[in-house]
Design a binder for these strands. Structure first.
Lengths: 196, 196, 196, 196
DNA sequence: AATGAATGAGCATTCATTCAT
DNA sequence: TATGAATGAATGCTCATTCAT
């Protein structure tokens, strides 16, 4: 009888921490798409499936549903921060990137209103922190000569625009975003952020 | 086949058809409270329980989840319409009632954003119709001398204010509503509607 | 949103993917018994319970109620096919196995009449396909010298016998099956199939 | 102040026992149609609605679901009896009426198989009694010169034909009924019964 | 005697979360 | 470390049955 090496049942290669980071990114990206398409209440399993990973991996990276949403929002906020810190940043570019995210997907809008959608009991902690980062990023980039000089006014304006940005198509949302800013005396239009 | 066993339980008095209207009102009222407290995704059973009726009654009056939400919003819209048709109606009173509903509960805000929360695929039909009724009610009551003379601008402004009205307490929401209107050049404050 | 609370309960061992196949078999077997005892309209939860698995497992393996029934019938049909392909297969053995299933349980009979019990609107798709497999298996195994040489006549005869096989006890059903075949000029008796 | 006669709330006229009989007939007729269209598992409320009466009336006339089915079958059986007792009754007319009911609707077939569909625990009592009435009606009307001289054989044959009569359209069911009888050596075709 | 609203148990279905492999 | 099957609680929804009017 020949010695066959026992055919080890295939087992997903352990690709180490490299894969872990890749998985996390894939999950965030998948979450963004799923949220955009199916709303914030989409099953987590759908996110894991689209990311091409098992359910367990999702839980390894995110303790709960809110953490996934926070991670998606985090990316958006980071891009706003980058726009604010970039060489030659202006209120047009910073507000533009912010507006871009607003019009990009219903998900982001929903996330801003996450208090209602996710946790009706007040603004969730992560949203608070992220909101402050946005405020900090916006500070110093208020449009000149308008009514929005104060940072707090600017944040209120952002919330207002987010309320206006509805509609099934991207074009419609962009149109409404522009119109909303205009009502606030600001000319702003969506600016696609640099992907880092 | 659903062969239900004989229930050997106490059976609360059947108050006859008279109770039907009362039950419907109780359901709408309960829905308003539950929505305010727990958001639009709250279980329908919770609404039925709070209304003090069985699950079936809810389904008798409302074919589906959206119908319940529509009924709640309907009441709000009706009160805006009444404010608009009232003797001596002004933009202050009409916008005031509208703003009052905005600040009254997260439910109304959520309902305006129902497309995200309930049906990610576009604005639900009932919302469309109700939105048009609000627009009609607002027509002719635009604040004078501002940027919101056009009815479409006014509706956009309403959406914007609704986006701004967040916060855990009524006071906070009122404060933000006022501030939002002010950024739009309108002095408006919540006006409690007459209950018919 | 379905926010499930943390279950603080004992959680039966997860036996991993290995158990998947075993669970599926257990479900089919449980379904067979439940169907035999309580008819095709029996609650799916009863099947899951008897199989010793959670509700979800049933849905993982079978998308809907019809799929469960199809799986049960599939096994029966397969055994008829095996009888037809077996060394030295005769019309006696093939019809015998078929008749055995007929007398074995009300389930099989019910499945043949599933159009009435499950979907009043015509024969369900799965039944069509399975029926054709039976017909193919029977082809070439028609009893010689009788009125059932044509395959279509043979299938009609099978349906007729299935209509005759009623009765609370196995013995009674066997008696009626035999008598039914005899009225058709065929001597046939139930033959227990080899379990593969 | 003028004396207005208090406008007595309208209340359904009490039409006495006449109406009661009419209601019962309407219910049976409605049940027949609903069963034919939606199967035996159709909600009782649907039957009451189609009969144009309240739910309560149904319960006044029939204690339970099985009683409704029994009443429908009862009519069928009565018509077979009438055919058997009619002037110049022959096996062709008696079997014809019986076959007519078989092909008329899936409901009747289902009723013959009610043991499976309604009460898996054996043949329900009403079916037993009705079956005996059919047997009695058929006695003396066996087709001559065939294999079905014995009444018990004839009843078995009826069951067999009922098993064969499937198909979505009336035409298909008639075709199969005829073919089934032919396999049993009997030429029979559906005969529409006289409505009494 | 009739109506039809109400009840509420039961079944279907989904999905967050765990965990053996 | 990843997989994905399994669990089971929660929720949606239906419908048999009762009963005030």
């Amino acid at each position: 009888m020949t010695e066959h090496p026992v055919p080890e049942k295939w087992r997903p290669a352990n690709h180490g921490p490299k894969a872990a980071a890749r998985n996390r990114a894939a999950l965030v990206s998948a979450a963004r798409e799923i949220y955009a398409r199916h709303g914030l209440a989409a099953p987590l399993s759908a996110i894991a499936r689209r990311a091409g990973v098992g359910q367990g991996v999702l839980y390894r990276h995110f303790p709960d549903r809110a953490a996934v949403a926070a991670a998606v929002l985090e990316e958006n906020v980071r891009q706003v921060e980058q726009a604010a810190e970039a060489e030659g940043a202006t209120s047009a570019t910073v507000l533009g990137v912010l507006t871009w995210h607003l019009t990009e997907s219903a998900a982001f809008i929903g996330l801003l209103h996450a208090d209602v959608a996710i946790s009706p009991q007040g603004v969730p902690p992560y949203a608070q922190a992220l909101s402050e980062r946005v405020e900090r990023a916006l500070r110093g980039h208020a449009p000149h000569g308008g009514r929005l000089e104060a940072a707090s006014d600017l944040m209120l304006a952002v919330a207002m625009v987010s309320g206006a940005v509805t509609g099934p198509t991207r074009e419609e949302r962009e149109r409404r975003a522009r119109a909303a800013w205009r009502l606030l005396g600001v000319e702003a239009e969506p600016v696609r952020p640099f992907e880092e």
